[in-house]
Simulated scan of single mutants.
Amino acid sequence: MNAEIVNQLPTMAQVYAKAVKTLRRKGKNPVLPERTLVYRQASADAQKLAEFRRAVGAGMNGQLPSLYVHSLAFPLAMSLMVRDDFPLPLLGMIHLTNEVTVNRPLGEQESFDIEVSAEKLRAHRKGVTCDLVVRILTDGKQRMQLRSTFLSTAATMDGPKPAKEEHEEFVPGLPTAQWRLSADTGRVWAAVAGDYNPIHLSKLSAKALGMPKAIAHGIYLAARALAGIEPVGVGYEWEIKFMSPVTLPATVHLQFEAEDDEFEVIAWNPRKLKPHFELELELLD
């Protein structure tokens, strides 16, 4: 891929300021740009890190939470999507999964390089999906990879569509935790992470993009679930699958399970008995 050095990290506000022009993007058989954006010598902002920890209940342990690194680097990844050669609209993209591998956690004082690219464009029964990939390196060695999969319903691809996945009937267990999320949860998290996607901010702005109400940020939900189980000083990997959005305000029931070197978190709507997400974490050998 073509590497392009970026001298300044964009903000999410700058990205969304350019997002409206991408709404016109539609069509068949889109092609992703072969481009990697590179930013050298990034580092944590002490105030933003403290705000992140307070927002999700993460402890002070001397290392950077994986999703703090994601929130710092992701505006660069999103900036790929507002460039003229990116074929899919940014607004309206649906967040499906995150897969994260932490080869070795980053210390709070470490500087690191960020590389971002888009890959794996593929057909989906509702449109197309693609992955935005963030790679974190120190001294040329990969320390972390964060892969986010998004669905766009604005484009299609020729060929057979994947069959709808068959899911077993969801039967919730006994909750071990409960979250009460207020109507302004999306706005509060946007101020922390800089993600001002309108589907998270208010009922009115969410309706403009086809959602009945504002929904909680997936990254906020994942970061809060990880706050108590993210390991310290060792390599690990985790994956989250989003099943149904958390519409705000909300009460969310969760079940945390630990077994040997693995953790599982399941979250659901206690009234409708619909799962919101499943998160699995395990230590690396």
Rank of each mutant, 00 (worst) to 15 (best):
M1G: 05
N2D: 15
I5H: 15
V6P: 02
Q8L: 14
Q8N: 13
L9K: 02
P10S: 14
T11P: 01
T11Q: 05
Q14R: 12
V15I: 13
Y16W: 12
K18A: 15
A19F: 03
K26P: 01
K28S: 14
N29I: 00
P30T: 07
R35T: 14
T36M: 15
T36P: 07
L37T: 08
A44P: 03
A44L: 06
A46P: 02
Q47H: 08
E51D: 11
F52G: 03
R54E: 10
A55P: 02
A55N: 06
V56N: 01
L64M: 11
L67K: 10
L67P: 02
V69G: 09
H70Y: 15
H70R: 11
A77G: 14
A77V: 09
M78C: 10
S79D: 10
M81G: 03
D84H: 13
L91E: 02
M93N: 06
V100H: 13
G107P: 04
G107Y: 12
V116R: 05
A118W: 04
L121Q: 01
L121D: 02
G127R: 00
V128F: 04
V128H: 01
C130N: 10
D131P: 00
V134S: 12
I136S: 06
I136H: 11
L137T: 12
R143S: 06
M144T: 11
T149N: 03
F150L: 13
L151H: 00
L151K: 00
S152T: 02
T153V: 04
A154Y: 03
A155I: 06
T156I: 06
M157W: 03
D158G: 08
K161S: 07
E165R: 15
E165N: 09
E166L: 14
E166D: 10
E169N: 10
F170M: 01
P172L: 11
G173M: 08
L174S: 15
L181T: 02
A183P: 00
V188H: 14
V188Q: 14
W189G: 00
A193G: 10
I199L: 07
S202N: 07
S205A: 10
K207S: 05
A208D: 02
L209M: 07
H217E: 04
H217R: 03
G218F: 04
G218V: 04
R224S: 05
R224G: 03
L226T: 06
A227K: 09
G228S: 09
P231V: 11
V234A: 11
V234Q: 13
Y236K: 09
Y236P: 06
W238C: 02
W238M: 07
M243L: 13
S244I: 02
P245C: 03
L248T: 07
L248C: 09
P249T: 09
A250N: 02
T251R: 05
L254F: 10
E257I: 08
E259K: 12
E259Y: 08
E259M: 08
W268H: 05
N269W: 02
P270Q: 09
K272C: 05
E278W: 14
L281F: 05
E282H: 14
L283P: 00
D285W: 13
D285F: 12
D285A: 11
